[in-house]
């Protein structure tokens, strides 16, 4: 197991992403962050807090559970659902930034786009991830990436977030078979 990002590096990466989001969207108006459970939620909250710090105003942040839209539901026993919280003003006409910890096959994001489609019609949908580890199986790319980490398929990228795991760090483990 090796640590590829420590706590300080994660904080720096998220701060950079916050600046990039503001730059791309010309400020924080009409901006909504939606974290994908579980760790995407904590990351989205951190970005939201960074953006609020920069802009000096609150930014809307919610969660989007994509479990019911997964394409691999029938391969495993039923998974627990997580709450979906959409800010009261809704997503219609907004710039929605989906936030997840790791971008891998792209299937989670496809499910998220389907889920979003049921809720409303945003002006744009963007994607922010802490780690992009490659191996895409769908035509999906991230708009904001904390760190690109080339991996082999039998490696495991794990994002630890202090509010969930008690520590901020990203590790790689190889899947010993």
């Amino acid at each position: 197991m090796s640590v590829v990002l420590n706590g300080a590096e994660i904080a720096r990466a998220l701060k950079r992403i916050s600046h990039e989001i503001l730059e791309r969207n010309h400020g924080s108006s009409d901006l909504i962050l939606l974290g994908i459970p579980t760790r995407g939620v904590a990351i989205a909250e951190q970005i939201a807090s960074d953006i609020s710090g920069i802009e000096n105003s609150e930014i809307e942040c919610g969660t989007l559970d994509i479990t019911m839209y997964r394409d691999d539901l029938r391969l495993k026993p039923p998974r627990n659902l997580f709450p979906t919280r959409i800010p009261a003003s809704g997503i219609d006409g907004k710039n929605v930034v989906l936030v997840d910890d790791v971008l891998y096959s792209g299937r989670t994001i496809r499910a998220a786009l389907d889920a979003l489609n049921e809720i409303g019609r945003p002006r744009t949908v963007q994607l922010a991830v802490l780690i992009d580890r490659g191996h895409r199986e769908l035509p999906i790319r991230a708009d904001y990436v904390g760190k690109n980490i080339p991996t082999s398929k039998n490696e495991n990228v794990k994002v630890h977030i202090s509010s969930v795991d008690g520590i901020d760090e990203v590790t790689i483990e190889s899947d010993l078979k």
Binding site: R74, L75, K76, P77
Partner: peptide, 11 residues
């Protein structure tokens, strides 16, 4: 959902 949303015995 909990009974047939995931993999069932038949799956």
């Amino acid at each position: 959902y909990l009974l047939i949303g995931g993999a069932t015995t038949r799956d």
